[in-house]
Design a protein around this nucleic acid. Structure first.
Length: 414
RNA sequence: GUGGUUGUAGCUCAACUGGUCAGAGCGUCGGUUUGUGGAGCCGAAGGUUGCGGGUUCAAGUCCCGUCAGCCACCCCA
């Protein structure tokens, strides 16, 4: 055991690989229904792209990014999230002006240098979507419902949808100032909050230690401008119209700088601290800030590993539909080549009575007894036995592993 | 990044206060008279007890370091 996967990374196999595929497959179906098309962007980008979009003072940029230089000295970074890349691609290919309905989804691995624990890894997977060019609250509601549907598709319905509005570039700065003013004179802030007061004062609102310690904390809701207020109300009534149960959460503050107005988070019932399954929000200024046209945008991402954890507790993976397993056995060693050729043939063409099969065997150098034991272990439903006397008549034996019955069959008819 | 906790065969675990303590179950492989399986019975492989130091006559068992997992914080999806 000399080598292990690097800290915070893991190999995905067995039931987890199945689950991951299922999640990706289901989400693609749903994205398609909502009219989103797939986009695949590079796994690394100019480091400065993330610094500018996510925010210089955020933890992600300050201490969690995998930054490296290539041989020509370009400063690159492994993507810590998907939105920045999508915005870049959107601008680079002029999708901001050529595509009236820019609805894109992506799926892939992200990288963040964090201390690992369950549901939090250094290489992890996100599935997300971005909706460009629609400033309507309907886009916000659509994305939130889409995220909810994605989770429901893998059996996760015990969730809490939290929403909030962070205001826009007009009203947020004033709220920010008010908040700083309020907490600057406050006594007994925890160490983290003292630090947060400088970097990201909005974060003080969801501190676990200081929560409830202070009274009459300024609420964003009271500082929203008329436009933002109307917008948020519309989002709420649209969500109601599609029976989306949500909680308005004044304390919901997203960590990334680019969010404006609507933000949301979908949490599981789990007791784990890593309970945020999906989150996102509106970012109306980012496209322009990164050099594109003035393009409103709304997006979200879900953490695949966390969703998988939640899905497993729901028992999602217990009822996977497997193909019928067929095992090819040989009773006489000299029939091996013929059996092998047959195996490849049915792999390619299926069997006449079932095209949806997985084929195992033949195996060299095992007694027939042990071949059948093996067939049991892999849970084959049928074993096709190549035996000399039948083979000479162009036949094989098909054994039903469940009821032990066995029939002869003409090879060419299978 | 901070604090805590854990680390023995593929898996789940055992080994009292340091002294035949390196084991069991499951799993894997093979045998059970040779062209037929799932049980039973028999047998085998597999661990320098995460790694590296130290204390001791003697360490899986104590001490230090390190690596890794987990939990909380932090952060975030």
């Amino acid at each position: 055991m000399n080598y292990r996967s690097p800290r915070g990374t893991h190999d995905i196999f067995g039931i987890n690989a199945l689950g991951m595929s299922l999640l990706e497959q289901k989400s693609k179906e749903i994205f398609k229904k909502y009219g989103f098309e797939e986009i695949r962007t590079p796994i690394f980008e100019d480091a400065s792209l993330f610094m500018r979009s996510i925010g210089q003072a955020t933890d992600i940029v300050e201490k969690e990014m995998y930054v490296f230089e290539d041989r020509k000295g370009r400063k690159l970074a492994l993507r810590p999230e998907g939105t920045a890349s999508l915005v870049r691609a959107c601008i680079e290919h002029r999708m901001d002006i050529s595509n009236p309905a820019g609805k894109f989804f992506y799926s892939g691995e992200m990288f963040r240098y964090e201390r690992p624990q369950a549901g939090r890894y250094r290489q992890f997977h996100q599935i997300g979507a971005e909706y460009y060019g629609n400033s309507s609250p309907a886009a916000d509601a659509e994305v939130i419902v889409l995220a909810q549907d994605l989770l429901a598709a893998v059996g996760i319905d015990k969730i809490n949808v939290h929403i909030n509005s962070l205001g826009c570039e007009k009203c947020r700065p004033f709220f920010r100032k008010t908040l700083i003013k309020y907490f600057s004179s406050a006594q007994g802030l925890c160490d983290d909050c003292a630090r947060r007061l400088k970097n990201n004062p909005l974060r003080l609102l969801d501190c676990k230690i200081d929560a409830g310690k202070f009274i009459e904390v300024p609420q964003m809701a009271n500082y929203l401008c008329d436009g933002c207020k109307d917008n948020f109300n519309s989002v709420k009534s649209l969500l109601k119209s599609v029976d989306c149960v949500y909680t308005v959460d004044e304390k919901l503050v997203r960590g990334l700088d680019y969010y404006t107005r609507t933000v949301f988070e979908i949490r599981s019932d789990s007791t784990s601290s890593q309970d945020a399954l999906a989150a996102g929000g509106r970012y109306d200024n980012l496209v322009e800030e990164l050099g594109g046209h003035d393009t409103p945008a709304m997006g979200f991402a879900l953490g695949s590993e966390r969703v998988m954890l939640a899905a497993q507790s729901v028992g999602l993976f217990n009822n996977f539909k497997d193909s019928e397993k067929i095992f090819i056995a040989i009773a006489d060693q000299e029939l091996f080549n013929g059996a092998f050729a047959f195996a490849v043939k049915i792999v390619r063409n299926g069997l006449s009575f079932n095209k949806d099969i997985s084929v195992f065997g033949p195996i060299n150098g095992k007694s027939l007894t042990n071949q059948l034991k093996y067939a049991d272990k892999i849970q084959a439903s049928k074993t096709i036995v190549f035996a000399k006397t039948e083979f000479e008549n162009g036949k094989v034996l098909i054994k039903n592993m469940k009821d032990k019955t066995q029939i002869e069959a003409v090879i060419n008819e299978l």
